[in-house]
Computed example of a mutant assay.
Amino acid sequence: MLANGASVIPQFVPYIPQLILLLWAFFVFVTYRHRVALPLYGIVCFLFVLSFAAFLYGEYDEGYRFLKLFFNCLVAMLLATGICQRYEENFSEAYSEAVLLFTVLGIIGLILTSFSSWSAVSSIGDRVYHTNFLTTWLMDGDFDSSHTLFSPFPYRLQSMFDEPGTYGMLLVPAFFYFFFSSRFLGAAILLMGVFLSESANAWVLCVLVMILKAIQLDRIKAKVFLGIMMLLVTTVFWSVFIQLYEIKTGIDAAYVHNSSVGVRSDEYAYVFNSWAYHVLPFDDMKVESRFPDGISVSYINWYVKSGFGFLIVLCLVFWRFCMKLMVNFKTGTHDGWFPIVLGATLLLSGFQRSSFLDNILFMTLTFWAIFYSDINKRAKLVYESA
């Protein structure tokens, strides 16, 4: 989380975090035995072929981009192996406590912004990041992603991640872990983080987690208590929820031309109407002129650039995820649900966020959740049967 991917720390402390990350990957490479699932071979080959095709078509910028993603993928596979060896079956706790720490520090950072305007500044194109090294806020032109609607603080909470929405989605699996482990103080802090992030998707997913917990409880009194608490929170914040979704969906007249749903709807409509022009990689790159600010839906961006091959790879990933889901339902235990929630959150984010499998952090978490999380359990089963 600190070294690469959706973290903004390398923006302010360059080279050192990436070097530490690569050293860890090298240590894993020379130390541990590696198991690679068949779909991962497909992803690696797919990225390599795409980089080669891009250079062949004269799309040099895309060629370098996919070549970088190819190496990111190799590093992410090593890191996923390292996670299995380092944490065995306790990664869910380690991940959740790390996110909790980011949340506590981020809230402290937001409080400090109310007393001091000091910040370090770094930019990527039109995006200007400010940080007091406890939290970050983003100035990105007309989008103004860190602008708050309900928060008592001047900026949305995003901790040290690139966007409030990214941070909100990473909060959901950690909230699931704390809430289902009955560690309610940690869950309450994370729920506060979700609220301060003002991420509509994170709000909905956390409500679903609470509903699932209410269904799972055995005692009627506990179910009633949790139901009353959820109803009370919903009643108090109902107007806030409605206003946020009016803005996100463009119902609010002030946001009708720049809403999240409106922007993404245009992109989905384009692909549904023009999918045949993008069957082959880099078949029609003129689409960039249609979306000069970039494509905000990760899956659409991947399909437009890489063609029908991406859909095949995506189907392999979803197939593996569905297999894990069915195994969990058959066993009837709760031990394997954290990887399911983490994987589902990341896969869902690809339908509405621009960065899915585009960085080492998301790649590593996705690979671990879908392909690596049960390696230690399989090893124990083999050992016990022997």
Rank of each mutant, 00 (worst) to 15 (best):
F26G: 07
N258E: 12
A120Y: 14
I295V: 15
V297E: 10
V261M: 14
P281M: 13
V209S: 05
V121G: 07
H334D: 15
E246A: 08
S145P: 15
V30P: 05
Y270V: 12
H34P: 09
F153I: 05
F282L: 05
Y129W: 13
N201R: 02
A188E: 11
M230W: 13
F362R: 00
Y277A: 13
Y303N: 01
F237M: 14
H278W: 09
F356S: 00
L100A: 01
M210A: 15
P339G: 02
K213S: 13
D358N: 13
L149D: 10
A188T: 14
L244A: 11
A214K: 14
G332H: 09
Q352T: 12
Y32F: 15
A202E: 07
L217W: 12
N301L: 08
F308G: 02
G42D: 09
I228D: 09
M169G: 02
V30M: 09
P17W: 03
V287K: 05
I43T: 02
E88W: 09
L47A: 06
L40T: 00
S355E: 15
L47P: 01
S373H: 06
A37D: 10
P14N: 11
S265T: 02
R219K: 12
F180Q: 04
A344P: 06
A25T: 08
G165D: 14
F153T: 03
C73N: 11
T136W: 01
Y270E: 09
R33E: 13
I247Q: 01
L244V: 03
Y87R: 10
S349D: 02
A53W: 10
F70Q: 06
D218V: 01
M363P: 04
D358E: 13
G168A: 03
I300N: 11
A25Q: 04
I340S: 03
V8N: 04
V327K: 10
L157N: 03
I228W: 10
K377R: 11
Y167Q: 03
G307V: 00
V209Q: 04
P154M: 10
H147Y: 09
M160E: 07
L40Q: 10
P152H: 09
S181F: 08
A202N: 02
N301R: 12
L22V: 08
L78K: 02
T345Y: 01
F282I: 04
D140A: 15
L38Y: 07
Y245L: 15
F318I: 02
E288S: 05
I43M: 10
F71L: 15
L23K: 04
F308N: 01
I251S: 11
D374I: 07
M77P: 03
Y177F: 13
S117R: 13
Q216D: 15
F48D: 06
S349Q: 01
F175V: 08
V172Y: 04
F362N: 04
T235Y: 11
N201T: 14
L40W: 06
Y167C: 00
L47C: 11
H334P: 10
A214N: 14
S197C: 06
L342D: 03
T131Y: 05
G193A: 03
C315Y: 05
D374S: 12
E97C: 06
V121P: 05
S181H: 14
A379T: 10
F26M: 11
F66M: 12
W118Y: 12
P164W: 01
F356P: 00
G350F: 12
V104K: 04
Q11P: 00
S298A: 14
R290F: 10
Y383S: 14
F179S: 07
W137C: 06
V36G: 05
G125D: 10
